[in-house]
Design a protein around this nucleic acid. Structure first.
Lengths: 184, 184, 184, 184
DNA sequence: AATGAATGAGTATTCATTCAT
DNA sequence: TATGAATGAATACTCATTCAT
């Protein structure tokens, strides 16, 4: 009798995509603990059932979100390393990466730390961080030997974590100084 | 002396204490996300009501647990720095601290990482990590200038985090080598 | 400021009991498939959280409900067998049991059948049916040898099931006739 | 003729059939409660939409599945009764039917019991069981009078149910003995 | 003719917290 | 002082069914 249009949302491609983006936003704002089907659905302005339709589980959604995050950071870093003409420039680029890519865009800062810890618990996520670590180290190996590359990687994580938590985080200049002291 | 009743738990001093220890155990095993009044009560073999009686809220309980954790790690580190006769020995002691205190006793490893992240979210916890950081840096300043102390601190965090997540974590020897390279 | 009485339901002993009774009612009316925390809470006029407080799981609740059902039927049957002066009277009592206890009180009829099937799936429930079967057979063994007792037990189940499903169920007289034919 | 697409399932006659078989398999393995469009689609390796395309509702699918089950059992039983030369042989054939057809092929055992109960709830299914009962009784009436036929039918159900639930089910020999005692 | 996407209702269960005793 | 009972909100997840393509 009535032509009930209900909600008229049908056919929304790249909704899956929006859900992933929304998830990253929530992790940045409220942490992994803040991610629930409900919170994601609300953030993406999508019905609740849609989240469970597109992802078989919350862990699945988290893994995809973190994969995307790791990918985008790694891509930028690889580009930086590729562009660096020599070791000297590479060191500066690493500093830039920390200050600008990891710490500068504040949401990303927390995102990385959240991923670190979530990975400590969830095997499925460990795969993600490890893939990211591997790419990161390979990019570094363009300019440094493997042992040094690994150490730099650890230093990067330490500087990021430290800055995320400290009341007086290091300035970009201090970060560059620390790296140059380590790699004279 | 007492006519042992059914549960015989009446007058149980240091129950508060046991609750805190139980909480740390749960964080180590299941993460901060695993902490609930129920899980703590179960782990401490204590009635549910007891957890809300001794702590006004879960966050309160978490803060106390983390405080104790930070204290005990800091105390050990301070002792190491105090015992080190000179800068050279101090560097080795830092390496020892990472390998033995932070990574060796595996539960503590995760505990620290969990604390790092929880602190990134909860202001009440940030106080705890910062107090810990301050003590840590002051202990380092017995042997190093403030700038170096801060950098070492960041490096420590990086090495811990890295080892917690890597498939091939650094050996104690590699950790010592990294520190010596940084502090020639 | 306000003396908010909220719902004023506090202190309701034997609520656990009412939940079990409500569950049996639902099984009778809608089958085991109709039992959910919500349906039980509604039927017992109790808040949803109350059902999960008193029973660790739905299966737990079902097991308790069926145990009570089996107990009450078994108790009645035992009394009938005890009261029967001789074999002849016992046969009539079995017929009475089927017609009056199992089929007469119509809710119970379906209850028993539901239990039979639920037990075929859930090991925890199988314990319940088996305990009931054992009591039933022991009661029969007051008047019949073990082999006969087992056969009568099967016949009882068949007659109940048959009557529950047939369009023209047997009359009490027909049931008695069937038993007498089997036990001449 | 066709440019084989990704899934190459186009034009798949007897898909309807496969869906019914898959449904019976699920009932046997997980009970009627385990039947959902999703579980059936998964078991039949068919897209989800296909299940709702071929059957207007889940109940419809269940009814068809049970009809097929009843048919196949009834057909076998009719054949057994037809083949029996006399009453004596018919009794043995009934025993055979219980031991071999109903209890022997274990999935079928549970299937029948599930059908019994589902029928107690769903009128649409009651039609199915009643049709089956009618055929069963008619087959028996080749050798027995109507009253006896009905009683045998009940006994069959009892023996099946009993065996499905008992820890020490009757042996084929015991089943035959019980029938012969009932039909001397 | 066939199907992937979509969605609202419903599932069991966990939980922080309050409160009467 | 201590605790078992109580409860409303929230959690992840499943599902029958509808519908656009």
């Amino acid at each position: 009798m009535e032509a009930t249009p209900r909600r008229a949302r049908r056919h929304d491609p790249d909704r899956r995509d929006r859900l992933i983006e929304a998830t990253l936003g929530i992790i940045a704002d409220h942490g992994v603990a803040g991610v629930s089907h409900r919170s994601v659905a609300r953030a993406a302005d999508v019905p609740l059932g849609s989240t469970t339709y597109h992802f078989t589980s919350l862990d699945d959604l988290l893994a995809e979100a973190f994969t995307r995050h790791g990918d985008s950071i790694a891509r930028v870093f690889e580009e930086r390393m590729r562009a660096a003409p020599d070791r000297e420039a590479a060191i500066d680029s690493v500093a830039e990466h920390i200050s600008a890519d990891l710490l500068g865009a504040s949401p990303d800062l927390v995102l990385s730390v959240e991923l670190y810890v979530a990975a400590a618990r969830t095997p499925a996520l460990r795969t993600v961080t490890q893939a990211w670590m591997r790419r990161s180290r390979q990019a570094l190996e363009r300019h440094f030997d493997p042992t040094t590359a690994r150490e730099i990687d650890a230093l990067i994580e330490g500087l990021v974590l430290h800055s995320a938590l400290s009341t007086d985080p290091m300035t970009p200049a201090q970060i560059r100084a620390a790296l140059h002291r380590f790699l004279p």
